[in-house]
Every structure is written in structure tokens, then in C-alpha cells.
Amino acid sequence: MDYATLLQILDSTIRLATPLLFACLAGLYSERAGIFDIGLEGKMLMAAMSSASVAFLTGSVWAGLMAGILASMLMAGIHGIASITFRGNQLISGVALNFVASGITVLVAQRLFGQGGRTPPLEGEARFHPITLPFAEELQSVPILGPLYHEVISGHSLLVYVAVLTVPLTWWILFRTRFGLRLRAVGENPAAVDTAGISVKGLRFAAVAITGILCGLAGAYMATALQAGFGREMTAGRGYIALAALIFAKWRPVAALWACLLFGFFQALALRPDVVEAVVQVKIPVPFLDALPYVLTVLVLAGFVGKAIPPRAGGEPYVKER
């Protein structure tokens, strides 16, 4: 494999890791606050459809982005009402919302555009376009690093850089702010938060809302940057891969970045089976690469690669006791 191919694969790694990273951090806020969310997939799908539709209709990708975030937050709100207000089963609520999203995105897109549940292709201002970072062209001739900077680091859409910056921001919020302290506390021991005079429900709704925003970004990125429009089931299980990455990262923001890059790398490899075959000299079936993130996550869950301890109060609705 030559250097150019490697750069190509790393470039698509970053593209493919971005929606995973948004969704993974989304799940991180929710789960750190004690709300399991297997509905990341559904929220992304809703956001993808909404952002593509609104971007197409208004011609503005920014309007699309807002619509995507709002749609995802709406879904997050329903999850919050079910699991926080009515203390329903968080897993079931997630499963249900994934079903609803899977169907309703097609219904709406079909109603709006009549193209079999797709949106028409987005063009011009209705899409996010690649940004060339400063000096990318000038430095291109520098050996090794120049092309790396030009091909891999530079030339992504704005949302990619936003995703990467969300990682340190999340770390800072979680470990350096009052809100972060309370958020982590409510996922570990809501009774401690409650007796300290802080609203458990308020905190959890805040966390779920952030989850909505980040899933909205993930979905909007899928439909308006990675691809040019929405297609049915276009998230293709990414919400679950993000969930896997979250466990793989043991609910830590910086580790989440590495986990998503790793899983993004597997996805990039799955697109180039020829390269994989050339490197390892054996024909690796593509489904094997597809399954790799899940297999790795199972190994982590089984404690073979360090123990993943979820937030202690995760999945349990908080009932005030005496």
C-alpha cells in the first residue's frame, strides 16, 4: 500500500468517525446522568431527514442544521418524559423511538418530495462544504507531513472540526464545572444530589437535551456533509456503533475520540477490501470488518480488555425514598 492510499483511508476514517463521535458524546452526557439511551440511532435518523429536508426547501444548510437539532431534541424530549417523568423503562423507550424514527422519516420525506422516501440531492448553500485550513496548499510540498496536513487534517466540513472540539469541551464541562460535577453525581447516586437540594429531574432533562443537540449534529452531518441528502435508514446502525464506542471508551470523553476513530477506521477499511487484502495477503470478508467494532465491544464488556463499569445509577429511574 502506498502513502497516498493510506492518506485516503485516514481521510475517510475522519469523515466516518465524525457522526460516531457526535453520537458517542451524545450518549456520554445521557448515560453519565444515569439515562441509558439506545435511541441514538433514531435521533440521528430524524435529524438527518429533517436537516436535509429543510436545507433543500430553504436552500440554507444552517436552517437545515437547526431543524435537525430541533427534531433530535424532540425525540430526546419524549425519551426524557418517558424515562424521567414517568419512570418508564429506558431501554424500551429507546427501542420504541428507533422504530418510530425509522418509519416516520420515510413517511415525511415521501410526503414532502415523493421520491420514495429520499430527499432530492442537496447542492450549493444547502450543503456543508470542505474547508481548506490555512497553509494547506503551501505546505503540501513538505515531505510526509505536508500531504498529511493537506489530505487528512485539512479539507473537511466545519462540523468535523466542531466534533473534534466537542471532545475537550465535554471533558472540561464534565470535570471542571459545577454542572459537570452534578451531572456525574446524578448518574452515580441521584439520592446524594436530591438531598443536596438539587433537582434530579432537572439535571437529567438537561443531559438528555444535550444528547438531543449532539445527535442532531450527528444526523445533520450525515445528510448535509458526508452525503448530499437523506435516504431511508441512512444511519445504518451508526447509533449502535456509537453506543459500542461509548462502552469501549468506558464513558470517558477523550477515550471516546480514540474509540470513534478506531471504529471509523474499520468502516473506512470496509470500503476498501482491495487494500486490506493487499496488506494482509489474505482475503478478509467485508462483513468481518463490519462486525469488528461489535466484537471488540463485547470483549471490553466481558472484561478481557479492561473492565467497563457503567455509571452506577444508569438505567434506574429515581424514586425518592425516605
Binding site: I78, I81, A82, S83, T85, F86, R87, G88, N89, Q90, I92, S93, V95, A96, L97, N98, F99, V100, A101, S102, G103, I104, V106, L107, Q110, G117, R232
Partner: peptide, 22 residues
């Protein structure tokens, strides 16, 4: 579209499974 049935399934799961307390 046939996807309506997916929506209905999701709604039934949501109301019977997650919102039964409501």
C-alpha cells in the same frame, strides 16, 4: 407508505412499554 406500520409498532411499544406508568 408501508413504513407506517413501523411507526405504529414504535408507538405501541412506546405507550405499552415505556409510558405505561403515565
Amino acid at each position: 407508505p408501508i413504513e407506517m406500520r413501523t411507526v405504529v409498532q414504535g408507538l405501541v411499544i412506546l405507550f405499552t412499554g415505556a409510558l405505561d406508568m403515565m
